[in-house]
Amino acid sequence: MSFNLPANVILPVDSIDVRLDPAPHPFERDNAEAIAAGWLEHQAGNPALFDGTMVLLSSLTYDRGVLAGVCHEVRYSTFLHWRRHPQTPGAHHAFAHAMPVSGDGALVAIRMAPHTLNAGKVYFAAGSFEPIDFVDGQVDMHRNMAREVMEETGLDLDAAVPEARHHLISTPGGVVIFRRYRFSQSADEIAAQVQAHIAADPEPEISEAVLIRDASTHPAGMMSYMPALVGWHFASA
């Protein structure tokens, strides 16, 4: 089991081969009692949390543009326990960020709603990989990104033009795999569409669209890795 990615460095990704292993994740198997106890604590603090399914990595390697890994289906409670012990050997997390770029060059991020685990945090609409994001056992990045962006913002990634290449940055909280999607609408038009989606959702996951128009814009609540992504975007736009 290996994780060889350098920390806090943006790397280009030309090929992704991350597969779903049907075997139980050793981290979940070996920490079942602690996971159950931790879930009771989380539920006491936020009864809205749901112990659904997602995936957790057992290996992830990067070599000359090729990202390869193995993950296993776990419960959300297992992921929350991992967040308390992120240095555990043989377990790591990855998630995908679609970076919506407006026709006038702004980035469209979101602020998470008060009832969510990341309440008030600002980043790009995203969610952990789930078994549904795998096709014939292999992860489909666009499938995950499109699903999460639609659920949270109402934006259709299939109406945007994707950049050919993915990139990644490895952080203590997980590996962020990201890709720019360029929309024809202006930033204000996209923000209005997102706000309409929020208003129509009885339990929205986000509270607002956050427009980032230049590299110096760092909204309150921005996730720690976001300045690196924002700086990279405006340096290479």
Score class of each variant (00 low, 15 high):
E28G: 13
N46I: 11
H42P: 01
L40I: 13
R64C: 06
A37E: 14
A48M: 10
G69T: 04
S58F: 01
D51L: 07
P47C: 11
P47L: 11
V74E: 00
E73C: 04
A68F: 00
S58K: 02
A48F: 12
A37G: 04
E33K: 12
N31Q: 08
A32W: 04
F50W: 07
L60I: 09
A32Y: 11
L49M: 10
L60W: 01
N46P: 09
A34N: 13
G69D: 00
T53Q: 09
E73D: 06
E41H: 15
V74P: 02
L56E: 04
D63T: 09
F27A: 05
G52N: 06
W39R: 12
E41Y: 12
E73R: 10
A48V: 10
C71Q: 09
Y62M: 04
E41R: 15
L40A: 15
A34I: 09
H42N: 13
L67I: 03
P47N: 08
R64T: 11
G45L: 12
S77E: 03
S58A: 06
R64E: 13
L49G: 06
A32G: 05
S58D: 05
A36R: 08
T78K: 00
A48I: 09
R75A: 14
N46E: 11
A32M: 14
A37I: 07
P47W: 11
E41D: 14
T53V: 08
E28Q: 13
